[in-house]
């Protein structure tokens, strides 16, 4: 079998923040009634995380649950375990009206870390990143300049960003420009 590689092979950039591509990440889209027992069992069973509230992400390392919409979760699992986790989830879902699909290879993931991470994000997305409005565990689906993107804040104040793999190069270049040395605004 061919060896899977991530979109940008772990490319990284150091500016006013550090921008790095996170490499391979298993992702499963789960749609269904988020209040139904089979869906909760499938989601929590695959990740060991609790169900996230509205616009929240419960993520530890490579496993977690992200709230995408009132009927959709993004399930993060280690890339090597996607097939096994998906099979277990499909079993747990049983006859429930739901859908679980492996979307790992359709996506790319970045990390933005450093003192100015909020600023770099605020340059690209129409979201209020003020410390009182967006904190650790908060999750948003929005856009990054001209393409769709989703992101959440981690406990250490860094951001993780998910975008479509087809636009990974565009998003990386966006982040590099937004993180150019000397481009700090100092607004937060």
């Amino acid at each position: 079998m061919s060896k899977p590689v991530s979109a940008l092979m772990g490319a990284a950039y150091d500016g006013i923040v550090r921008v790095e591509e996170c490499g391979l990440q298993g992702m499963i889209t789960l749609r269904g009634d988020l209040a139904s027992k089979p869906v909760i069992a499938a989601a929590t069973g695959a990740t060991g995380q609790e169900m996230p509230g509205q616009r929240r992400a419960n993520v530890a390392g490579e496993s977690g649950l992200c709230w995408m919409s009132p009927d959709e979760l993004l399930v993060l699992v280690p890339h090597a375990e996607v097939s096994a986790k998906l099979a277990a989830m499909t079993t747990a879902l049983g006859d429930a009206h739901s859908l679980a699909v492996n979307v790992s290879d359709a996506r790319a993931m970045f990390r933005v870390s450093g003192e100015h991470a909020r600023e770099v994000m605020a340059k690209l997305a129409p979201v209020d990143f003020a410390p009182g409005a967006f904190g650790p565990g908060d999750f948003r689906r929005s856009r990054l300049a001209q393409v769709a993107g989703a992101f959440w804040m981690e406990e250490d104040g860094s951001f993780r960003i998910i975008c479509f793999r087809s636009v990974a190069d565009y998003v990386f270049k966006l982040l590099k420009v937004a993180a150019q040395p000397g481009s700090a605004v100092g607004v937060f």
Binding site: Q54, R55, S69, P70, P126, R140, R141, S142, R143
Partner: peptide, 12 residues
């Protein structure tokens, strides 16, 4: 009314 966000026009 679904995700509770005050969405900017450019998101809509």
């Amino acid at each position: 009314p679904y995700c509770g966000v005050d969405a900017d026009e450019t998101e809509l």
